[in-house]
Nucleic acid binder design. Structure first.
Lengths: 226, 226
DNA sequence: TGTACATCAGTGAACGCGCGTTCACTGATGTAC
DNA sequence: TGTACATCAGTGAACGCGCGTTCACTGATGTAC
């Protein structure tokens, strides 16, 4: 089973998410194609496993970045930069897994509920970092001029550090997490999918600048000069 | 030929970018599958046509938003919001074309040089809007604390309104365009690919808030209360 | 005005390919008495 | 200790499918003399 997942990952890395084929994986393992059905009910079931693994890797990278960054006494803003950089590095190293979860959905595939918990981990890390910035007094507790509360579905407040308290503060942190998350997957997708092609010779530099600039809009001030 | 492209678009809308099949298009047109080769050299050539059409639609939407927004005497910041909203609307209405150009690259397909000019139009509109904000005095002409010039490939300066002048100002506007572009495709992809699922009941509201917040980091202040 | 010829859009059969999934099976390993 | 049986990982042939692309062709339309 572990071998199967390893082979699936290898196939993912060479053929991409859409072209993932049970027969190809079986071939790589030196098995008959039918043998794969011992371990996995269908192609979609295998996709689900890979997607959950992907979200978990993303979540783990974020949590890890938070842990080492706060242990080093970094500011919340720098912790966010550490999260973003960790995600970028993971995405560059595992670009097809990134595509699988944040790229175009695989046609005909419907993500089951099982993936939600894993997908939430990165959001938790972001929201928690925002609350940490708030606690440290470096982030303004009042927001911009738009009706923040109305944007957020009630169930989401459970993600917040404040439990399910539907305060303005809690809503604002969640709204801000939208912007941070968006700038993160926007920056990674733009880079990985070739939209900076010919525009820069310094992709990590552009990534940092993009993340820092968007974070400034949220009130998180990252300094990129040492 | 026009019918072929129309049928290809229809197929794109139902099957998605990866599953685009010449045979399916021929079937829709009531033709033999071989007849398609009268008009198009291969599947990849058709993809290229569709991609160029897509980039042109994106570019036209941006240029159109700029034109009507400035004609109405809006601020540059509001012009950016108009561009972003126009792109979102186009993307929601043509989600599979959006995927084709800003989603996961189609496996095995290599975009030829022909697509570059069309892909550039949206960038031009963004950079031009930033220069307009600069001219009107609402945008700071000095940047954040990172080495802006080093990020930008020399050839790109031709995109700038200043011609190919490699000034700090010009570099700064291009660097800022990275952030705006990134927040735009990040926000659209997050929405279209289901990453806000369950988190909000007001997708247009979240989109506006996300765009406005990221733009604030660039120095463009959008007010979302009427 | 009429005939011969060229053009060209579209046909239909065929090629070789890879896919997901099913099904009856083999043969080794482990377990119970 | 030895035999009968159950378990279970993996086999291999087959199913029906859709794909991109090629190729020799047909038959209508237009053009030149």
């Amino acid at each position: 089973m572990a071998e199967l997942l390893a082979a699936a990952h290898a196939r993912l890395a060479t053929d991409g998410a859409g072209g993932l084929s049970l027969r190809a994986i079986a071939r790589d393992l030196g098995m008959a194609s039918s043998a794969v059905y011992r371990y996995v009910a269908s192609r979609d079931a295998l996709l689900t496993l890979l997607i959950i693994e992907g979200y978990d890797a993303v979540g783990a990278a974020a949590e890890n970045a938070v842990a080492t960054s706060t242990r080093a006494g970094e500011s919340a803003a720098n912790t966010w930069l550490a999260i973003a950089r960790a995600e970028r590095e993971w995405a560059v190293a595992n670009s097809h897994t990134y595509e699988l979860i944040y790229g175009t959905p695989v046609p005909g595939y419907q993500a089951p509920q099982d993936t939600v918990r894993a997908a939430t981990r990165i959001w938790l890390a972001i929201i928690d970092t925002l609350h940490r910035a708030l606690d440290s007094g470096t982030l303004a507790p009042t927001g911009p001029e738009f009706p923040t509360e109305r944007l957020i579905a009630p169930g989401v407040f459970e993600l917040s550090r404040l439990g399910d308290v539907q305060s303005h503060e809690s809503a604002l942190m969640i709204a801000r997490s939208f912007t941070l998350f968006t700038s993160l997957i926007g920056a990674i997708s733009a880079e990985l999918f070739g939209h900076y092609h010919g525009m820069t010779g310094d992709l990590p530099g552009v990534f940092d600048a993009t993340i820092a600039t968007a974070a400034a809009g949220v009130g998180l001030h990252i300094s990129l000069v040492p």
